[in-house]
Design a binder for these strands. Structure first.
Length: 549
RNA sequence: GCCCCCAUCGUCUAGUGGCCGAGGAUAUCAGGUUCUCAUCCUGGAGACAGGGGUUCGACUCCCCUUGGGGGUACCA
């Protein structure tokens, strides 16, 4: 009985994979895996103007990073390819012709301007715009003539009018659209490419898709698509499930415009920004930067990222790669995304992909939209870092360090594993990176944070304590963390100080900030020689102008 | 404007007429542990949008209002 489930993810390659798309892909993939079905990846590149050549590639990389592998699609092939719509033109043409021959579709020769005027008129008449279907359909000859005259030639589907269009939706139940609600829509553009609403129907049929899981923004397209499906004689409809949409926690829609917007606002608020330098960092001319700040234009992503990094402005993550670069684990993303608009029905939240697959059920999709809460995401990531095996974490960390170009890449596996161990409790891979960098910098490359110096070195005899610590360290012949700990603790006790008063000056001396892995591990890993050198540097550098004795 | 969808703690959600004096997570607050950051532990506060019905009984069903989202393209 039950036919094999076939689901698909059909992104248009206009940019990086963003969280919304990732979630759609995930749900489709989860259902396929749950049921032992097939997951198809199809690239919807029918818009000549908007496709970026590298985008499809990027989307696939991001899917793979998440662990979402497709059974049919680009790069892997399959029986129903090609999987790029731009390579399926003959297929669409065939069906357009069929519809034309059966008088279920017709040619149109309107210019965009004419259409625009009709639309405005309809608005003025306070009605929805419905294309006025001609009593007599133009013939192939008319179309040729129009083309010869340089008129645009499109093909419209004659949507069956006068009947209620009913959509059965898996998550929303029955949805009805009144007759006349859906106007005749274009199925073939004047450049010969199919429109989304057409290509999607043809492909879902020929790729034998059984379940269409997509965002609710497609709900209103569905009656038209289903009418088309019937007109084409495609037989039984796939099941449709329209998921709730995810909105951003930084207000409004989760859109790629958020990042430039955040940066723009930051530039506006920040005092004394060196605009020339900034333009240089972003590889922009001053005029281009100016126009960006004024909100007139938006530079490309690498430019935005570079400027944000330079200014130290955190941008909200929106693309999957952004989350990767912020140090999130793919396990976290999959887990978190799965729980946006779905839940297993019990109180489980932290789940591995295997558990998600096992528990997944379309019947448990949520109807209402949800906010993407980055705070909760961090909590999830902390949890996943904690539960991931050291080996796996090491793999993730290495990949991460390489991509973000951290000096920590210099470490070998053993050392990285050690770092992972002593950074227990880290919330992101970025935390581990940040805390570890001091080990991989030259001692003269250490930047001493102003605040840290003032607070721990120049106050409470910080430098004096540091000098004592220095001598004690120098006198040690065994440089294990146990020895270091014993020494520091007994010193603190002897001086009637809290351990912090002893540890903090040392910490600032070796890494320039008040934050590092546990001090005993940090010192041991740095090594005796380098530790002493950095302390000496510090003493020298701040000893004079400080008020240390 | 018109059409479609949605509505439980700040947020993600459990809840399918009595088990709910509404459960979990996260955020937040108060304590505690700790050499920093983080982790960790204990406790607190916090929600059924409003109004009508239906019913012996509504968070759960129906209607209206309000609020949010989406669509209204030769974008997908």
């Amino acid at each position: 009985m039950a036919e094999k489930v076939v689901t698909r993810f059909a992104p248009s390659p206009t940019g990086y994979l963003h969280v919304g798309g990732a979630r759609t892909a995930l749900f489709n993939w989860l259902l396929a895996r749950r049921t032992g079905g097939t997951f198809v990846l199809r690239i919807e590149d029918t818009d000549q103007k908007r496709n970026t050549p590298t985008a499809a590639r990027q989307v696939m990389d991001d899917l793979r990073w998440l662990g979402i592998e497709w059974d049919e699609g680009p790069q892997v092939g399959g029986p129903n390819g090609p999987y790029l719509q731009s390579e399926r033109r003959e297929i669409y043409d065939k069906y357009v012709k069929q519809l034309l021959d059966e008088k279920k579709a017709y040619y149109c020769f309107d210019t965009p301007e004419e259409l625009e005027a009709q639309r405005r008129q309809a608005e003025a008449d306070k009605g929805g715009f419905l294309y006025a279907r001609p009593a007599e359909f133009p013939t192939d000859r008319d179309a040729e003539q129009a083309r010869a005259q340089g008129k645009p030639v499109t093909v419209r589907f004659a949507v069956p009018q006068g009947e209620l269009l009913v959509v059965q939706d898996v998550v929303r139940g029955e949805i009805t659209f009144a007759p006349g609600e859906i106007g005749d829509f274009i199925i073939q553009k004047s450049d010969g490419f199919p429109t989304y609403n057409f290509a999607c129907v043809v492909d879902d049929y020929s790729m034998k898709i059984t379940h269409v899981i997509r965002g609710q923004e497609h709900l209103n397209n569905t009656p038209g698509q289903q009418a088309l499906w019937r007109a084409l004689g495609f037989g039984e409809l796939p099941k449709y499930a329209h998921m709730s949409v995810t909105v951003s926690d930084s207000g409004g829609k989760l859109s790629k415009r958020e990042r430039p917007k955040t940066l723009r606002n930051a530039i506006g608020t920040l005092q004394d920004v060196d605009l020339d330098k900034l333009a240089d960092i972003g590889k922009l001319t001053c005029d281009e930067l100016d126009s960006f700040v004024k909100g007139e234009t938006t530079p490309d992503m690498p430019s935005i990222d570079a400027m944000a990094q330079y200014l130290g402005v955190p941008l909200p993550e929106i693309n999957i790669v952004d989350f990767f670069k912020s140090g999130y684990l793919p396990e976290t993303m999959v887990n978190f995304l799965a729980l946006l608009g779905w839940n297993p029905g019990d109180n489980r939240e932290i789940m591995l992909v295997g558990e998600l697959i096992e528990a997944f059920d379309l019947a448990r999709l949520t109807k209402s939209n949800s906010l993407f809460d980055r705070k909760k995401l961090i909590a999830f990531n902390t949890e996943h870092i904690k539960m991931t095996s050291p080996e796996k974490l090491l793999r993730h960390l290495k990949h991460y360090l390489k991509v973000v170009d951290s000096p920590v890449v210099a470490a070998d596996d053993e050392r990285l594993s050690e770092l992972i161990r002593i950074c227990e409790g880290a919330r992101t891979l970025a935390d581990i990176d940040r805390k570890s960098r001091f080990l991989f910098l030259d001692s003269d490359a250490i930047e001493y944070e102003d605040k840290a110096v003032k607070k721990v070195l120049l106050k409470n005899d910080g430098l004096a304590v540091l000098a004592v610590v220095r001598d004690k360290l120098a006198a040690m012949n065994e440089f294990t963390e146990e020895q270091i700990e014993n020494m520091l603790r007994s010193l603190a006790e002897k001086k009637q100080l809290g351990l912090g008063k002893v540890a903090q000056p040392l910490r600032v001396a070796i890494c320039g900030t008040t934050v590092s892995p546990p001090i005993f591990d940090s010192v041991r890993m740095l090594g005796k020689e380098e530790t002493l050198a950095r302390i000496d540097n510090t003493l020298e550098k701040f000893g004079r102008d400080g008020k240390a004795e």
